[in-house]
Design a protein around this nucleic acid. Structure first.
Lengths: 183, 207
DNA sequence: AGATTACTTTTGAAAGC
DNA sequence: GCTTTAAAAAGTAATCT
């Protein structure tokens, strides 16, 4: 009875592909790579296989953002390693990839009264400033995520470490709102 | 001993100096916004509580003062927008908002979001609209709230749209531009809101 | 008056200021 | 705290036709 039908919108992950990188070399070899040390210490590289964006650092660490799946992260990181190898840069064999953040969207399919929800969840537990942003911000401890609740019934879950975290948090919100008769 | 006393006096001086500066800042901003004494006093109370809880650490006095004033306006039901507070303060709206969230949480102010209704008196007087239009605006806003037409929308935009409609219904029409200017929103926003209100509340607007 | 583009909020890592 | 990346939600805004 809890098919939350979460849609993962973005996955952020980090890994280490080498002990060090010469970003200047990568910038000249990789088409479209952007590197401005005074602007940002990392090199920006975008791929469209599965769409993703990388932030490559001189320390050999890499941040991957933009994929819609956890599986795609492994795919694109693998592709990046191959691409680096092809220009003569060696990389670590089985890099440990850590998913740092998952952003997902969901829909409760009901118009919501955010003022009532603010009181119901407790003003000390939420942030709702329609003057600045239309969504109500609700921070959950277990799983530790942040849920943005909109009057349309749509939700955005940010901060999850796994797809399961996102689904669980939507259920937590759904159950809490339901128990207060706010659905 | 003597050294300890000197230090205590020094700290005391700095603390008092900072408090005096903060209070003068509150006065300056409140005057610029034409806020009544009660709001300034409320802001001063909020600021003092923030000092007592050491919430100023890592934050600028100006920022906390601006946030305290913003909070006080809301507590007194005479809200000013973050943009209005920003205009008379020396800090960015982003910092005022961030500091407001912080002291609001730490001092457990538990403020509900600003109600569009609280903007009606000020906006109407700014448009030289009298009691009848104000009452009609409030009536429209009450209905709008019941029909879930205000959740997630900017309070000033909703208030502006209601006043725009009320002014027409009362035969004292104000243009979207005039209402937009006093409310600090764009004509596009008033248009979007009033169309929604008119449609959902079945209000016929004949121009 | 549309249409477009863009900014508001949230999350997380990276290295450095 | 900031800088950079990506992404959704819905509202508001700036600019162009």
């Amino acid at each position: 009875m809890s098919e939350s039908s979460i849609k993962i919108e973005n996955v952020v992950a980090s890994t280490k592909l080498a002990e060090e990188f010469d970003l200047t070399v990568i910038e000249s070899e990789f088409e479209g790579a952007e590197y401005n040390k005074q602007k940002f210490p990392g090199l920006v590289y975008r791929v469209s296989d599965p769409k993703a964006a990388f932030l490559v650092f001189t320390s050999g660490k890499v941040v991957c953002t933009g994929t819609k799946n956890v599986a795609d992260v492994h795919t694109v990181v693998g592709n990046l390693a191959k691409k680096l190898n092809s220009i003569g840069i060696k990389t670590i064999e089985d890099p440990q990839i850590t998913v740092q953040n998952i952003v997902a969207s969901a829909d409760l399919h009901t118009i919501l009264n955010l003022n009532a929800i603010a009181i119901g969840l407790g003003l000390e537990n939420i942030e709702y400033e329609p003057e600045q942003f239309p969504g109500l911000v609700y921070r959950i401890d277990e799983p530790k995520v942040v849920v943005l609740i909109f009057s349309s019934g749509k939700l955005v879950v940010a901060g999850g470490k796994s797809p399961e975290d996102c689904e669980r948090s939507v259920e937590v919100v759904r159950q809490q709102l339901d128990s207060m008769g706010l659905l | 001993r003597l050294r300890k006393w000197q230090r205590r006096i020094r700290v005391s001086n700095a603390t008092e100096r900072n408090l005096a500066f903060a209070l003068s800042e509150l006065d300056r901003m409140a005057s610029a916004l034409g806020l009544p004494r009660t709001v300034r006093e409320t802001a001063a109370v909020v600021y003092r509580k923030a000092v007592d809880k050491n919430l100023i650490r890592g934050r600028s006095i100006e920022g906390v003062a601006a946030a305290a004033l913003y909070a006080a306006c809301r507590q007194c039901s005479v809200p000013r927008t973050l943009d209005e507070i920003e205009e008379v303060s020396r800090v960015s709206r982003k910092e005022i908002g961030r500091t407001y969230r912080f002291i609001s949480r730490e001092l457990a102010l538990k403020l509900m979001p600003t109600s569009p209704i609280d903007y009606v008196p000020r906006f109407c007087s700014g448009l030289n609209l009298k009691g009848e239009v104000q009452s009609k605006s409030v009536e429209i806003l009450r209905q709008a709230s019941e029909k879930e037409l205000t959740s997630g929308r900017g309070p000033t935009g909703v208030a502006a749209a209601a006043i725009y409609i009320a002014s027409i219904l009362c035969g004292e029409r104000r243009t979207q531009r005039e209402v937009a200017d006093v409310a600090g929103v764009t004509e596009v926003t008033i248009r979007n809101r009033y169309k929604e209100l008119a449609e959902e509340l079945d209000i016929e607007i004949i121009l």
